[in-house]
C-alpha cells in the first residue's frame, strides 16, 4: 500500500472527533503490539488492534472504516488491561462504531437475521449484539 501523509489528515476533524468520543489520545500509543498479542479475536480482524491505532495515528481513518476490526471486537478490554501506555483500543473501536451507527448505518440488518437463530439465542446476547451492531 502507498499512502500520502499530510498534517490535514493527521489532524483531521474526524480524527479529533474520534478522540473526543473515545476519550483516547492516539499519539500515546507507542506501537508495542501488546493489544494485538492479547486480543482473543484479533485473528479474525482485517486489521489488528495495534495497527488500527497506527492507521489512525497516520490519519488514515478510511482504512480502518473499511476493515471489520471494530465489529469483531468483543469489548473484553484485554487490550486496555495490558497496554503499558494505558490506551484502550476497545474504546477507540467503540468510538469508530459510534461514528458509523450515529449516522444510522446498521452493521447488522435486523430483518435479515433468520428467525430460528433469534429463537435459539439467549435474550441477553441479542440485546448486547443489537446495542453493539445496530443504531
Amino acid at each position: 500500500m502507498k499512502i500520502k501523509l499530510a498534517k490535514e489528515e493527521i489532524e483531521s476533524a474526524s480524527i479529533h472527533q474520534l478522540q473526543r468520543i473515545s476519550g483516547e489520545d492516539l499519539k500515546k500509543c507507542y506501537q508495542c503490539g501488546n493489544c494485538s498479542g492479547g486480543c482473543p479475536v484479533s485473528f479474525e480482524m482485517d486489521i489488528a488492534p495495534s495497527q488500527v491505532m497506527r492507521f489512525l495515528q497516520l490519519g488514515k481513518i478510511e482504512e480502518v472504516m473499511k476493515a471489520n476490526s471494530m465489529w469483531v471486537c468483543v469489548g473484553c478490554l484485554q487490550c486496555y488491561s495490558r497496554c503499558p501506555k494505558g490506551c484502550s483500543v476497545a474504546a477507540v473501536l467503540e468510538g469508530l462504531r459510534q461514528t458509523v451507527l450515529r449516522k444510522g448505518e446498521d452493521f447488522e440488518k435486523i430483518k435479515e437475521i433468520p428467525i430460528p437463530f433469534l429463537e435459539k439465542a439467549p435474550q441477553q446476547a441479542i440485546v448486547c449484539g443489537f446495542r453493539k451492531l445496530v443504531s
Binding site: 500500500m1 499512502i3 501523509l5 495497527q51 497506527r54
Partner: peptide, 9 residues
C-alpha cells in the same frame, strides 16, 4: 508499522 510506503510533500 502500518506496512505502507509513504510519501510526504
Amino acid at each position: 508499522l502500518s506496512g505502507s510506503q509513504v510519501e510526504i510533500e
